[in-house]
Simulated assay, not measured.
Amino acid sequence: MEDKSRPQVITRSIPWIIWLIWKNRNSILYADTQVSKDKALSNMMQKVEQWFILNCPAVQNTGERINIEIWRPPEEGVIKCNVHANWRNAVLHSGVAWIARDESGNVSHHARDAIINTPNRLIAELQCVSWALNSLSDLGVTKVIITSDYKEVMEALKSPRQWPRYRDLIHQVLKLKDKFVMVAFETESVSANGIARDIARSVLRDGRFQSYLVLGGPSWLHDRLARERNGNSI
């Protein structure tokens, strides 16, 4: 890790690689499952990136500022809802979550659930968007921005004719727009969508399969929510 001749992206990933090997070993021994190497490494690199974004100084020794994509609040009167579906494969449950915040970064509600029968991540994400819109409509929200770091689902909702295989699901989501005064779909960076991602991951990680919807944000993410509310990702 102290070898400066190696790329930083490799040296700083070493602790996560060790952790990944340990998790994979436990999955094989106790759950008889194994995530593909490419998917496992991709997920690991996202965690590494997110950790360094949240915990490293914004200014390097050279004095240059790091370009960090952080969560941005919506316009006044609009609710911004980050969503994420933690899909692993077609057999296992998928953990889904959404978290809604106002223009001041205050959390109005958040929710999580476990869903089944999802052949791929796009379907899981579309179901998550549909669930979030239904919930927000029931809560009386009239103007909302739905954001996800999975750009394909945002592209499908903006250009449904280019995704004929998912026509029925996309139609269900778009029909829900009639319940609102305004609905927009936007792509978020992985780091800016980190809160929703972590809530969704907790469903499978901690065995939290019971659906719930509550006021405010999760207490275990309080510090990160405060940093994002204050516009500070450090």
Results as ranks from 00 to 15, higher is better:
G95H: 09
G95L: 06
A97L: 09
A100H: 09
R101P: 04
D102R: 14
D102A: 12
D102E: 12
E103S: 15
S104G: 13
S104K: 15
S104F: 12
N106P: 01
V107Y: 05
V107P: 04
V107D: 02
H109P: 02
H109R: 14
H109M: 12
H110L: 10
H110R: 07
A111D: 02
A111G: 06
R112K: 13
R112L: 12
D113E: 05
D113Q: 07
D113M: 01
D113S: 12
I115R: 01
I115E: 00
I116Q: 11
I116H: 03
I116R: 09
N117W: 08
T118I: 05
T118M: 10
N120L: 06
R121W: 05
R121P: 08
L122Y: 05
A124I: 07
E125N: 03
Q127N: 15
Q127P: 05
Q127E: 13
Q127I: 14
Q127K: 15
C128I: 14
V129Y: 03
V129N: 05
N134W: 01
S135T: 13
L136I: 11
S137N: 08
D138Q: 09
L139A: 07
L139P: 01
L139F: 08
L139K: 12
G140I: 11
G140N: 07
T142H: 14
K143I: 07
K143P: 10
K143H: 15
V144T: 11
I146W: 08
I146Q: 04
I146M: 13
I146T: 10
T147D: 14
D149A: 10
D149F: 08
D149K: 07
Y150D: 01
Y150V: 05
Y150W: 09
K151Y: 12
E152F: 02
E152R: 04
M154H: 11
M154E: 10
A156K: 00
A156R: 00
L157N: 04
K158D: 05
K158I: 09
K158M: 10
S159A: 13
P160K: 03
P160Y: 06
W163C: 00
W163L: 00
R165F: 11
D168A: 12
L169P: 00
L169R: 05
L169A: 06
H171L: 09
H171Q: 13
L174S: 02
L174E: 01
K175I: 07
L176G: 00
